[in-house]
């Protein structure tokens, strides 16, 4: 019996070794879906500037989670996060819809476009990425070069040499939901069904699209500007196609203060830093954002003309998101 008593005592003892941790007095908790390699230098710079210790939790795009937005919703009775720093906008709007965000507009956000600053001040958009077409310059000629997102469905290039990320996750899903609002659900559904029927390749993620274009497996594909930057930076034989028509979908990043957060003052200081032109420039230089309103860019993936963005009502996009996901699962997961 003694041995069981010993074993029973062992479990709480082992638990206690990890369960007790000191928190420093000046700290801020940030939940972020910005990639860890991009977010870390920005947060380190904030720590060095203010002396406030940052406790981040990172989301992971590669395993398709939007875990942190869901986590904030689950934690609403006892919030842990002070700031939600989102690489895109939809999940921030979702939290706003759930009534989980506190009104605060950082003074450093001055100079941002009006669409980046909502009247209720529940969130602030910062920078952004765009959905663009990356082409393999060895395969695509001026005659076959795609000029619009819609060219994914009609092109002289064989269907198995065109591709995009499976539109069930991340920015590809946001893009699909945007098309649902812009074109109407029926037309958008038919367009995706057509892609499937033609055999257009649906890849695991935007990074896979980038690698497939760079290797020459795809002649062109739709992806985010940050993915394109990586290939262009490596000197691969790729180029960004000039888009006409609706223009590119620009997905802004966003920051928001969580309602009832444990360190609201530190949270506001962090919000001020993240909304500053300095942080915007760091994220632009690091390659996460290519749309940097206060730091006119020299980035390779958004040459002149690409900054023209689709006219999007994000509230409507959020509304059609579940339907879009449901319908696209019906098309692509069978």
């Amino acid at each position: 019996m003694k041995r069981f008593a010993f074993l029973a005592a062992l479990v709480p003892l082992l638990l206690a070794t990890t369960a007790c941790r000191k928190h420093s007095p000046a700290e801020v908790v940030v939940y972020t879906s910005v990639d860890q390699p991009q977010a870390e230098p920005v947060l380190k710079a904030f720590e060095a500037r203010t002396g406030i210790h940052v406790l981040p939790v990172y989301d992971v795009e590669a395993v398709k989670t939007v875990g942190l937005a869901n986590r904030i919703i689950e934690e609403k009775g006892r919030p842990k996060a002070d700031v939600f720093w989102n690489g895109e906008i939809l999940q921030t709007l979702r939290l706003d819809k759930e009534g989980l965000l506190e009104a605060y507009q950082p003074p450093t956000a001055a100079g941002l476009p009006a669409s980046y600053l909502p009247a209720d001040q529940h969130w602030t958009a910062i920078g952004g990425r765009a959905r663009i077409l990356l082409v393999d310059t060895r395969q695509v000629t001026p005659a076959t070069c795609p000029r619009s997102i819609a060219d994914l469905a009609k092109s002289p290039i064989p269907a198995n040499r065109r591709g995009m990320a499976m539109p069930l996750f991340g920015t590809a899903l946001t893009h699909a939901a945007t098309l649902y609002t812009l074109w109407g659900p029926e037309k958008a559904h038919a367009w995706f069904a057509d892609l499937k029927q033609q055999g257009v390749r649906m890849l695991e993620g935007n990074a896979s699209v980038r690698e497939a274009v760079a290797r020459g497996e795809l002649a062109f594909g739709i992806l985010d500007t940050d993915d394109a930057e990586e290939a262009l930076g490596r000197g691969d034989s790729v180029a960004v196609s000039e888009l006409d028509g609706d223009g590119a979908l620009v997905i802004p990043g966003s920051i928001a203060l969580v309602k009832g957060s444990p360190h609201p003052e530190s949270g506001r200081v962090l919000m001020d830093f993240l909304a500053s032109p300095e942080a915007e420039a760091m994220l632009g230089k690091g390659g996460f954002f290519q749309v940097t309103p206060r730091n006119p860019g020299t980035c390779r993936s958004l040459p002149s003309g690409h900054a023209k963005s689709m006219d999007v009502d994000w509230a409507k996009v959020l509304e059609v998101l579940p339907r879009t996901s449901e319908e696209l699962q019906g098309i692509f997961l069978k």
Binding site: R21, V29, V30, Y31, D35, Q36, P37, V54, L55, P56, V57, Y58, D59, V60, E61, A62, V63, K64, T65, G67, L68, N70, R71, E74, K80, A81, G205, A207, E230
Partner: peptide, 24 residues
């Protein structure tokens, strides 16, 4: 994937870092 929901603030694991890097 499961860890992201429960990691305490300020902590991350080798797997979450690796998958974050795989994006590039």
């Amino acid at each position: 994937a499961g860890m992201i929901l429960v990691l305490p603030p300020g902590r991350s694991t080798l797997a979450t870092r690796l998958f974050n890097l795989l994006h590039y």
